[in-house]
């Protein structure tokens, strides 16, 4: 564990708490893509199934359980508790176009051709692109509540912070994880436009609005 990975994980945790806070205080999931949230459930379950056969640390297991539980809880909030506040007509990104290529990538790029490793690789690729329905929705509406943008910023910062972690691990442990690094760079790249608007507008006290 190094500081970059730890801060990345904290940022990931923070993003979930910000999202829960947004849903609970506004009693609404307006502006949040159900499809993106459902993809995260798939990502976490696919990757963290190793809870049953691999022990890394208490920290690692606790975080995995938290991410599985919180992502399922968010789906419950969106689909049942605050269902009327979710507008499916603007959440239309076709997730098949993400799932199928990720499955193919996982079958080609994996560290061992067995069920657990292919599933792991699939979850890594899927996580990289799972934010697309959310970004697509943002693009369509052209604006977002501040709290939603803080959620996205914390979520984007999480994988961005993993990049210095991988550089650090390369020099200190000689560890290279080409699949995670490639997907992580793609994932961070998808946020660049968002980060630009977030830093130049939201953090300057303006509303998050995309140019028409």
């Amino acid at each position: 564990m190094n500081i970059f990975r730890f801060l990345g994980d904290l940022s990931h945790l923070a993003s979930i708490f910000i999202l829960l806070h947004k849903i609970q205080t506004t009693r609404s999931c307006r502006g949040i893509s159900f499809r993106t949230q459902a993809l995260y459930v798939v990502v976490f379950i696919a990757r963290y199934l190793d809870l049953f056969f691999r022990y890394v640390s208490l920290y690692n297991s606790a975080m995995k359980l938290f991410f599985i539980a919180s992502s399922c809880y968010i789906l419950y909030l969106m689909k049942i508790r605050y269902r009327p506040t979710h507008d499916p007509s603007i959440d239309t990104f076709r997730v098949e176009y993400l799932l199928a290529p990720c499955l193919i990538l996982a079958l080609i790029f994996n560290y061992k051709f067995n069920f657990a490793e292919v599933l792991w690789s699939f979850s890594i690729w899927l996580e990289a692109v799972a934010i697309l329905p959310q970004l697509f929705m943002l693009q369509r509406t052209g604006e977002a509540e501040n709290i939603t943008t803080h959620y996205l910023a914390a979520l984007g910062a999480y994988r961005a912070l993993y990049i210095p972690n991988w550089i650090y691990r390369y020099f200190t442990e000689g560890l290279v994880d080409p699949i995670a690094v490639t997907a992580g760079i793609v994932q961070t790249g998808l946020y660049l436009d968002f980060f630009y608007v977030y830093f130049t507008k939201v953090l300057q006290g303006q509303k998050f609005e995309l140019p028409a």
């Binding site: 990931h12 190793d50 890394v56 640390s57 991410f67 560290y111 490793e117 972690n165 560890l175 290279v176």
Partner: peptide, 10 residues
């Protein structure tokens, strides 16, 4: 080192 057996990241 090869990462295949570790997967110690979240």
């Amino acid at each position: 080192r090869h990462p295949s057996s570790t997967h110690d990241e979240l």
